[in-house]
Simulated assay, not measured.
Amino acid sequence: MYSLQWHRPLMLLAIAMAMLTIVAIGGTVIDDRTLTGLPIWAKAVKFALSVLIYAVTWAWLIDQFTRWRRIAWWAGTVAALGLGLELIVIVVQIVRGTTSHFNFTTPVNAALWDTMGLSIIVVWLATLVASLALFRNATSDPARNAAIRYGAGLSLIGAALGMLMVFPTKAQHDTGSAIRGAHTVGLPDGGPGLPILGWSTTGGDLRIPHFIGMHAVQLLPLVVIVLELAARRISAVRPASVRAALVTAAAAIYAAVLAVLTWQALRGQALIHPDRLTLSAAAIIATAATGSVLMIVRRRPRVEPTAPEPPRTPIGAM
């Protein structure tokens, strides 16, 4: 159960983000302004939800620590402050009717973007420190350890991929544009996009690998939950060593998908219009994934487990 006692600054941030989500959804209904092809409050909705998930996840994780707990607590606090500042800038710019990212059109806009960029770097470094502390706090379940550790590592990589967006495009450089940086590769920002998400349907979009990577720390633990539920009925995945191997394979597959999505975006190719190279890479990943899963579940563990089934407790009760 969620508790403010997990990590108070992060949980307070989560509450603030839940409130902002409601306000921003209301804004999309009553405010008819658009920005880069989307309702002007859509960015606040997406960022608030993402930060809400981040805050609850890390508040829960830090609460489990027995080693480096104080260091992790301060890292979480710094991250909460940085994320709060980032969302303040986004909301301020929405109210002002302009973009928050890559905006150097006026001294005020440039100062706000610089502030936001600094806060993003601080949050990444704080998350790195918390992730290092995470590696010092192993549980008794190797599958859970693998999911949380690989998830944290991939999340850091995904967050770092956001740096690919901050460099001026060739067109911006050639024209001396006051907008320096872009989400879309090969086309200007603001073209046709997927509903709600806004990801480009005509060009490469670096937000896709950025988003997928950042949320590995939530998605990989879900694999553990599925495996633990499956182990109650399927004897092949009951041994802890088998579940740990499957989680490791899932992390490797996740990393491969993240690499392909980044490669696809950098080539200026829309997610929903893959070419033969992208489809071939996807086929290789799917084949490798199927083969590795079959090999793992068919391999007999060296020592048969004595326990008939895995723990029934939720993943949060470590």
Rank of each mutant, 00 (worst) to 15 (best):
A270G: 00
S241A: 06
N103G: 02
L197G: 08
P192I: 00
Q269I: 02
W263L: 07
D31P: 04
P314N: 03
Q269N: 01
I315N: 01
V237I: 03
V89E: 00
D63S: 10
D205A: 05
E304N: 07
P274N: 00
A138S: 14
I40S: 15
R302Q: 10
F135D: 09
I88Y: 12
L128I: 13
L219F: 13
T106M: 09
A110N: 07
W199G: 00
T248S: 14
I296K: 03
Q5C: 06
G26M: 11
V92C: 12
S235A: 15
I62E: 01
F102E: 06
G204T: 00
A16V: 06
G97H: 14
I71K: 12
G37N: 07
P142N: 05
A159F: 14
K43T: 10
V108K: 10
V122W: 09
S235T: 15
Y150A: 14
T77E: 06
L134E: 04
G204Y: 00
A16T: 08
L83N: 06
A236Y: 03
G190C: 09
I120Q: 06
I22M: 10
P301K: 00
N137F: 02
L194H: 13
S235L: 12
A14D: 00
P209A: 04
F47I: 11
I121E: 15
A147G: 08
L4K: 01
G198Q: 04
G162R: 09
L13R: 02
D174T: 10
I315A: 04
G291E: 11
I30Y: 14
P274L: 01
